[in-house]
Amino acid sequence: MSDQSYRFPDSIEEVKRILDRHNDEVTIVSGGQTLLPLVRDGTVELDHAVDISRIPALTRIERTAEKTVIGSAVTYRDILASEKSDRHPMLLEAIDGIGDRQVRSLGTIGGALASGEPALDIIPVLYCLDATVVIGSSDGTRRVDVDALYRNATKETELRGPREDYIGLAPVEIDASEIIEAIEIPAIDDDGHHGEDYRKQTNVAGGWTISGVGTSVSLSATRDRIDSARVGLAAVGQTGASAPTVETALEGTPTTMQEITKSVEQLGADIEPTTTLVTSQYRLQVAKTLASRSIAEAVTRAGGELE
């Protein structure tokens, strides 16, 4: 290869071939909204770029009775504009609040997952929606849960400056020879007992998420009990985070504010809040506030009456 290159492959197969041969040298560029600022400030060297934003198979949204499949290079804007994504209100409300118009127009769903940047709002949302990430390489294709991408990741990433604890690149369990091809979101078996919500706090509009909390709940047939819950968190840890302790605590509890607050009090067991932009104490407090509100709103949307 020459010293520097910037390529636009026509197909996923071509990307895989390049990755197979040069995976140590090339960097995949999707929307570039996380990557390029890091290149510009010298944190990341980008000598050989493989830009996937023009590959038709990666920029499509498809919908079946069972699931919605979003290509990894689909932009936030296109998700918002597509009729095919309207069955996931939480996804749309989270995306609507991401960054600014430029970020939403260029940033992609797969780029967000691959960066692992835990302040990105989309990761906890996809976790709550039980999404599956389709990852391909020349060896084939594998499917993993969203949170599995980050759960055990230990990849050392060289970072510098005040961003190092969460803004930038975070460990992600994706090999350099692999590419995220698509995200599959299962259709919700909507028996009228499901509710979801995403909310966040930023220092200023369009700024980094200080704390973000997403919730999806399923209520009992009588709608007075939480059958199951997923609570996803943005910007509270080193990587995209879930709150299993809170989820477990919520399961089977009556839909009362008192029970929700009690469950949320255990949030500290699930996360180790970071200190970028605000103190960890504040981040935890805000995460608790937002979690209580998000769970309550999800319950309300599921038809539950909060006591």
């Binding site: 600022p37 400030d41 005040p162 961003r163 803004i167 220092n203 200023v204 509009a205 369009g206 700024g207 980094w208 932009l277």
Partner: peptide, 15 residues
């Protein structure tokens, strides 16, 4: 510590 417009908070019409 916050010498970029991503990290330095400026007011927009929303504020």
């Amino acid at each position: 510590e916050n010498s970029s417009l991503a990290d330095y908070s400026v007011a927009s019409p929303v504020e």
